[in-house]
């Protein structure tokens, strides 16, 4: 057994936990306040965004800031098709269109590395926002669009299912030969290429897979707004959040991404309601503290406690 396969202990724990959470989450709307359902939907959305961002960026170390363009594309797919087709189909189309966009971006950007890649993906995302603004004003003759709303419980379940699918995909990729190849690209791309890996195809494909989930999440979330325009749909915040959440939770582990997304979403909401004026400032300070003092994120901290606890027990006996 090698470390590219999760050790069986951890695997069992992970699966058990996932199943418990799932059962819990699936029955949640039966006994919980509607506003909590809405918060939980946000958490699931950020789990989808962070985990899918990490599918590509964590192993390959290509930090993408294009998430907003994929998410926003999903939102617009809903805005255009939401009244015409059933939700699952629109969500699927949202994912596919985002994937196609990712293929295109991938072809353009994946020759770039490091900082150049980061800047280009961010620039690309901004370009998409500005061009859709231009399109809406000059071609469609609208600035924004009214969106067909959907019941909160349905959005909740849709996002829960999507989060589940994203996690399964991320988990399967990590464990597979495909995951090992991605990891080797992040470690030393030139060596990976000489090991028989078609690094370009691998990167573009993964980028597209990751974008699929972001686009699907966008299509689901669109139903929550009654009105959208490009600055809402393609908000740059959506490009930064998954990066911050993954780092906050611990970029090396899947449960770190989940943890980071969950904790930061809750934190952001609490800060926003408690300190509406200092919200961004406090949020930024907490992030800085985590990055400075917890280089492996929350997961690193937990593992330290875990090991510390075990060592303590041994010392006592």
């Amino acid at each position: 057994m090698h470390s590219f396969r999760v050790t069986s202990n951890k695997k069992a724990l992970f699966l058990a936990l996932l199943i418990v959470i799932l059962i819990f989450a699936a029955t949640m709307p039966l006994y919980i306040q509607p506003y909590i359902i809405i918060s939980l939907t946000s958490i699931f959305m950020y789990i989808v965004l962070t985990v899918s961002w990490a599918i590509f960026s964590a192993p390959t170390r290509y930090i993408s800031l294009a998430s907003a363009s994929f998410f926003g594309t999903g939102i617009y797919v809903w805005a255009i098709l939401g009244s015409a087709l059933p939700l699952p189909i629109v969500v699927g189309i949202g994912g596919l269109v985002s994937s196609l966009l990712a293929l295109l971006t991938g072809l353009l950007t994946l020759r770039l590395r490091g900082l150049y890649f980061i800047i280009f993906t961010f620039g690309f995302s901004e370009f998409v926002r500005h061009s859709s603004q231009w399109w809406e004003i000059n071609i469609s003759g609208t600035e924004g669009r009214w969106v067909v709303g959907v019941d909160h419980t349905i959005i909740y379940y849709a996002m829960l299912i999507l989060a589940f699918l994203t996690l399964i995909t991320a988990y399967a990729i990590r464990r597979s030969r495909f995951g090992l190849a991605l990891q080797s690209i992040g470690q030393f791309e030139e060596a990976a290429a000489h090991a028989g890996i078609n690094v370009t195809a691998m990167k573009i494909m993964t980028f597209a897979i990751s974008a699929f989930f972001m686009g699907a999440a966008g299509a689901i979330m669109a139903t929550r707004w009654s009105y959208i325009d490009p600055s809402i749909a393609f908000s740059p915040l959506i490009s930064f959040m998954p990066v911050l959440m993954a780092i906050f939770g611990g970029i090396g582990q899947l449960y770190g991404h989940i943890l980071g997304a969950g904790v930061l979403t809750i934190l952001a909401e609490v800060l926003l309601t408690e300190f509406p004026y200092y919200y961004m400032l406090l949020f930024g300070l907490i992030l800085l503290a985590v990055i400075l003092f917890l280089p492996h994120g929350l997961v690193g901290l937990m593992e330290k406690w875990w090991k510390g606890g075990l060592a303590g027990k041994h010392a006592n006996t």
Binding site: H2, S3, Q183, Q187, F188, A191, A192
Partner: peptide
Amino acid sequence: LFADMTVIN
């Protein structure tokens, strides 16, 4: 080398 990966991997 893939510095952070094990020798066998």
